[in-house]
């Protein structure tokens, strides 16, 4: 498998009137072609900001990228997404990388028919004429499971239900057959039965088109069903990255472990209390000088307060930012 995206040391801050918010603190990860990478984290952990910053979707200012690079590979040649000009970025967004937003109602243009919004990128990126774009848009609507696509082409977003709007968003994102699709909490606002439909749809489309998917979510249940690998984020830090089975079986970061045992499960009838993580996420106004999870961590020891932990390998394709070796139940011994 070849690498399609390689993010290194991405550090991003928001310069606000109240001070500097350290939204991302040195994010590094790779995305392999054809895989589904899930980015998991609680609100404010920086999971959406990471992917939005790559596509220049954040207003700058207040956002400012302090350092880092994001290499996007086309036929083996890397281009740094972060250094791209506006015009170049225009050619990448939609054509090379599709984006599915959480809130389809506010992401779609309310005064433009759904069909034309799908056709828009076809005309722009693929240079189709209006008629071909219309036909293709109807095919796409049909493909994402909207019944009566021909009639629905002329509908406005408010005439669609929540699930159908999300399907239309997916149609827009995949219209130009991009190599990578970023799905930013696409099912969070939906009911659970509709969520199941959208997840199935996304899986089918990925299988059929061999797309690379980065799926941003806070729902560890959804992740279990779709991801090949998982990146866990906490307070702007990538605390753990692992293949999905490994992450759920052997979480190597106390935060991941806490998160997994804090979840109630439908297949667990015991009445045990949920193992909660004490405290709340940290204030991100201060530049991190130590592990951001130290305040809430049950395994914290003096070293955790002295430096930000680097990535430690913890198995095949598994790395964690923690000074404590959870597997062996003792602090790591390296210098």
């Amino acid at each position: 498998m070849s690498t399609i995206l390689s993010v290194r040391d991405l550090t991003l801050r928001f310069h606000t009137f109240d001070g500097v918010v350290h939204a991302l603190n040195g994010i590094s990860f790779d995305v392999q072609a054809g895989e589904t990478l899930a980015i998991v984290g609680e609100s404010g952990s920086g999971k959406s900001v990471t992917m939005m910053s790559l596509l220049h979707l954040l207003p700058m200012p207040p956002a400012r990228i302090a350092r880092g690079e994001a290499l996007f590979y086309t036929n083996g040649t890397p281009t740094d997404l972060l250094k791209m000009s506006r015009a170049d970025m225009h050619r990448v967004r939609g054509a090379q990388i599709g984006y599915i937003f959480q809130d389809a109602l506010s992401a779609l243009n309310p005064v433009m028919t759904v069909g034309r919004q799908i056709g828009e990128s076809l005309v722009m990126h693929l240079g189709m004429d209006a008629e071909t774009a219309r036909k293709r848009a109807i095919d796409l609507l049909d493909d994402v499971g909207i019944p009566g696509a021909r009639a629905r082409y002329r509908n406005y977003p408010h005439q669609f239900s929540g699930g159908m709007r999300q399907r239309a968003m997916i149609a827009i994102a995949i219209a130009c057959n991009p190599r990578m699709v970023i799905a930013d909490e696409p099912t969070t606002a939906l009911d659970v039965t509709v969520q199941a439909q959208i997840v199935e749809l996304a899986k089918r489309i990925q299988r059929e088109r061999g797309m690379t998917v980065v799926w941003i979510t806070h729902d560890l249940g959804v992740v279990a069903g779709i991801a090949d690998r998982v990146l866990v984020m906490y307070a702007g830090c990538p605390v753990e990255i692992a293949p999905v089975d490994d992450l759920y079986d052997h979480p190597q970061h106390p935060y991941t472990r806490g998160l997994l045992s804090a979840l109630p499960r439908l297949d667990d009838r015991s009445r045990r209390d949920l193992a909660s993580i004490q405290g709340a996420p940290p204030d991100m106004m201060a530049s991190p000088r130590h592990c951001q999870f130290a305040w809430r961590c049950p395994y914290v020891f003096d070293r955790c307060w002295k430096a930000v932990p680097p990535y430690y390998p913890a198995g095949k394709g598994h790395a964690t930012q923690c000074f404590y070796d959870l597997e062996n139940g003792r602090p790591r011994t390296d210098a």
């Binding site: 239900s161 699930g163 009911d191 509709v194 249940g221 279990a224 759920y248 499960r265 297949d267």
Partner: peptide
Amino acid sequence: VPIPDPKKERNRRRITLTGE
């Protein structure tokens, strides 16, 4: 409802409801 367990999720047969 998804279950936070990748192995169980993979072997699950879903009854997917159509429509909303």
